[in-house]
Each structure stands twice: as C-alpha cells, then as structure tokens.
Design a protein around this nucleic acid. Structure first.
Ligand SMILES: NC(=O)c1ccc[n+]([C@@H]2O[C@H](COP(=O)([O-])OP(=O)(O)OC[C@H]3O[C@@H](n4cnc5c(N)ncnc54)[C@H](O)[C@@H]3O)[C@@H](O)[C@H]2O)c1
Ligand SMILES: NC(=O)c1ccc[n+]([C@@H]2O[C@H](COP(=O)([O-])OP(=O)(O)OC[C@H]3O[C@@H](n4cnc5c(N)ncnc54)[C@H](O)[C@@H]3O)[C@@H](O)[C@H]2O)c1
Lengths: 206, 206
DNA sequence: CATAATATGTGAATATATTCACAAAGCAAA
DNA sequence: TTTGCTTTGTGAATATATTCACATATTATG
C-alpha cells in the first residue's frame, strides 16, 4: 500500500509536523507542510488522501491527529525490539543512543565476537553470537543493527538471516547478499559525503 | 547531467564492482552487475550509456576502467577536505573512522562548543566554532559532518552555512532549514529502523 | 570466411510519479 | 442565507523512470 518513495516522504512529514508542534501550532495546511519539507502541496495531499488521511476543506489538518495516523501506518502499536551486532566505535555510540524509546523501540542486547567487549559496562547485555537465537526468540527480534568490520559483514549478515533476522541496518560499506525476504538498509557515510561533494561541485559550475 | 536517483545507483555499481574485483574478476557484464546489485541489466546499460561509459559488444565492461570512470564522475581528482562538528558519541566514532582516505577525502578538523573536548587526544585538531572560517578558508572546506544534539542542530547548521559550508551530512533527527544552494543529507537511524520494521511487518502479512 | 552465439546500445512502449486544473466543501462575514 | 474566500481532494495531463524489443557490434568456432 505504501511504496518506498512514499515512506521517505512520510518520514519527512512527520519530522516537519513535530517541528511545527514544538512551535506551538495545532493545525497545519498542505502549503505550510510544503514550505517545511520542500515537497509540493499537491503531492502532500495526494499522499495523505491515498493513506486515508483526510483534512478539513478549509481548516487544514490537525497536527496531533496527523501524527497519530502516521504513527499508525509506521510504528507498530507494540514496542519493537532490536539488537546490535558489533560493539566497536560506531556500535558503542549506538548503544548509548537515547532515541530508540521515542520511536517505540527497544535495544535489548548487543553481540560481539571479542570477549573483551562482553562486560557489564554497556547499557545493554553483550553476548557472544552463539546466543543470538536465544535472544531473538526470547525478545521476538526481527531487526538488527550491524556495525561490524567490512571483512566480516557478509558472514555476519548471513548468520543473522539464518537465525531469523528479516531486516538489517548495515553500517559496513558493503553490498550484502541476502535472500529476497530480507531487507537491508545501508548507512554509508562515505557515499553520503561523496554525493554532497558531487552536488556542491555541480552547483559551482551552474 | 546525473540525477539523484542515478547517483544512488552509481554508488551501488561501484560497491558491486569493488566486490567483483576483490573476487579476482577483471571484466563484468550488465547481467552480472544486475545480479549483484538488484538493478535491471538494461537500466545499468542505460545508465552507463548516458554517462558516456561504453562497453564492448561482446566482452562486457572492464572492471578497472569502469571504476575509474565512475570515480571521474563522482570523486573529484583532488582530495577533498571535510570537517566534523560535534564530538559526542557519534562524532568521536566518526573521527576514528578510517574510510575517508580511500574515498579521497580528508577529515581536517573537528569543532565542539565544549572546551573539554578541545584536547589533543583525538586524531584531528579540535577547535571552537569561532575558528570555523579560518579552517574552512585555509583548507577550502565546503562540506561538513554535523553530529550535534537535536536542539542545537538548526542553529549550528545556519552558522555553518553563514561560513561558507555548502553541504551538510546531518546526524541529528531534525529537518534543517537551509538556503537553496545548500544540500543536506540526513542520516537518521530511527527512520531507517522504522522503515525496516515497516517492511518486515508487511512481508509477514503478504 | 561464414555462421552462430553473446552482449551492448537505444528508440519505442510502458509504467510510475508528479503536477495541473478545477470542482466541492467549509468557514466567515455581511 | 447569500456571497466570497480558502483549502482540500481528485481526474486528467504531463513528466520522469524503467522495461521491451531488437538492431548492431564483437568474438568464437567450424
Ligand atoms: N567508525 C565510524 O565512524 C564508521 C563510519 C562509517 C562506517 N563505519 C563502518 O562501520 C563498521 C564498524 O566500524 P567501527 O569503526 O565501529 O569498527 P570497529 O573495528 O571499531 O568495531 C567493529 C566491532 O565488531 C566486532 N566484530 C568483528 N567481527 C565480528 C563478528 N563477526 N561478529 C560480531 N562482532 C564482530 C569487533 O570485535 C569490534 O568490536 C565498519 O564496517 C566501518 O566501515 C564506521
Ligand atoms: N549516538 C548515536 O548513536 C546517535 C544515533 C543516531 C543519531 N544521533 C544523533 O546524533 C547527534 C549527536 O548524538 P551524540 O549521541 O553523539 O550526542 P552527544 O551529546 O554525545 O554529542 C553531542 C556533541 O556536540 C557538542 N555540541 C553541542 N552543541 C554544539 C554546538 N552548537 N556546536 C558544536 N558542538 C556542539 C557537545 O559538546 C557534544 O560533544 C544527536 O542529534 C543525536 O540525535 C546519535
């Protein structure tokens, strides 16, 4: 029902709405949202309309209601559990991250092959990968954040998939091979930087 | 010349090519690349063709040559300098990151308002934001990585733009308002996780 | 050297995404 | 309660992206 392009936009809407809400506003209009997000007002209305979200012909959209409806479409009702694999530089930052809660998510455990990492000094218990299935079963986890080195990324991903993981947020700069039913989202800092450089370069010429 | 959709694909091609190269291959075909990337073979050929990259009617594409040509399109010839603003959890991981070099980039300095962060214990010098213009001028920096808290993200972004930054890689979960000539790429862990959850959820139903 | 096999390259066709144009709904004000 | 203004909602038109279909180049082989 919701396509991939749309999901990105919906997330943008949500962020814009949160901002407007924080500014004390209670309702908004497709044009204001357009201003905030850079997405055209018609497209915003089409998106909402397609999702069954309806505004008032002159009063616009109620921000709280809109946020609720968007949350219904994404964020599931019940809290979702997530795990983290790889407690290095990035991994340990992610463990300390405080944003999970407000997205109705819960980081329940971390995993690392290095026994030295498996101490109690982190905010979550750290296990060996052997315990993966136990944890995913107990906490009904189907999504993992993966912050392991490039060279072990594919191997780790395959292992995660074998153990029931269906979604991977991958920080390693590697294209992972996974079965069709598994979704990978890559976060690749270098790729993003290069795109920035490319576009700032373009602008100079134009 | 290269649109935004394409840039994403080109990056995928590059990663796939690097992988094939590492496997010892020297040439490849649109169909193999399709296999690797999940992008259709015709589209790959169209992309290449549009970029002026030509293969041999039966011998496919030479991997090294292809990589070079892609590099010509993105990565500029000369090394590009980048700065980092915000040396907290994420920021200090990014300072330790070793991937910049291979993308022909150089992290030249970091900035933080907290004087306690401005020590020599990091891999790069850490300055107060007052020194921003000095650094950007000296090193000809137009792209910044921003890893500051949500509440100061907008303010920081505006300051960066005022001082000549044209591209921002933003880790704060906030939609930044910037002038048209500035490009922002957002890295938002929660958004990516939510998309994973959404799609893994969908699959269960289908 | 002819023939078959394999891949590229690309115009035309199709599919998808976005904008245009405008009717209908809701509110305000007279 | 009529009139005018504002904003949504949506079919039709347009624009953009992708695939189809196939001509064309290249190599291998008998
Ligand atoms: N550090 C950064 O800022 C940064 C930025 C962008 C991308 N990345 C990428 O993120 C990944 C992690 O980077 P990092 O700097 O945190 O690396 P790191 O070497 O500091 O950490 C990697 C961690 O993974 C663990 N590990 C290794 N193999 C494992 C396995 N098979 N299973 C479980 N754990 C395993 C190691 O013990 C270590 O704790 C790398 O692929 C890197 O390219 C890092
Ligand atoms: N930690 C994570 O894993 C994680 C994950 C996703 C997103 N984020 C986002 O990344 C950002 C940084 O997260 P963090 O966990 O590293 O936060 P943090 O609080 O650990 O670090 C923030 C750093 O920014 C500095 N800072 C604050 N205001 C500044 C300013 N105006 N100019 C320069 N420096 C300033 C602070 O002194 C601190 O060193 C936040 O917006 C957070 O939401 C973090």
């Amino acid at each position: 029902m919701v396509n991939l392009l749309q999901t990105r936009r919906l997330q943008r809407y949500r962020m814009a709405l949160l901002r407007l809400k924080k500014m004390g506003l209670q309702k908004t209009f497709s044009h204001s949202l357009s201003e905030e997000t850079g997405i055209s007002a018609v497209l915003i209305r089409k998106d909402f309309s397609q999702l069954g979200i309806r505004g008032r012909r002159r009063g616009g959209y109620n921000i709280d209601r809109l946020l609720e409806q968007l949350k219904l479409i994404f964020g599931s009702e019940k809290e979702q559990n997530v795990i983290l694999v790889g407690l290095g530089n990035i991994g340990s930052a992610l463990v300390k991250y405080e944003g999970y809660r407000q997205g109705n998510m819960n980081l329940v455990a971390a995993f690392d092959i290095d026994p030295a990492k498996r101490t109690r000094r982190y905010q979550v218990p750290v296990y060996s990968l052997e315990n993966l299935r136990d944890v995913t079963d107990t906490f009904d986890v189907s999504v993992a954040i993966m912050a392991v080195p490039e060279f072990s990324a594919q191997e780790t991903a395959s292992y995660l998939v074998e153990n029931g993981i269906k979604g991977i947020l991958n920080f390693a700069p590697v294209l992972l091979k996974v079965p069709d039913h598994v979704l990978v989202n890559n976060i690749n800092v270098m790729v993003e930087l290069e795109r920035l450089m490319y576009h700032t370069g373009i602008k100079q010429k134009a």
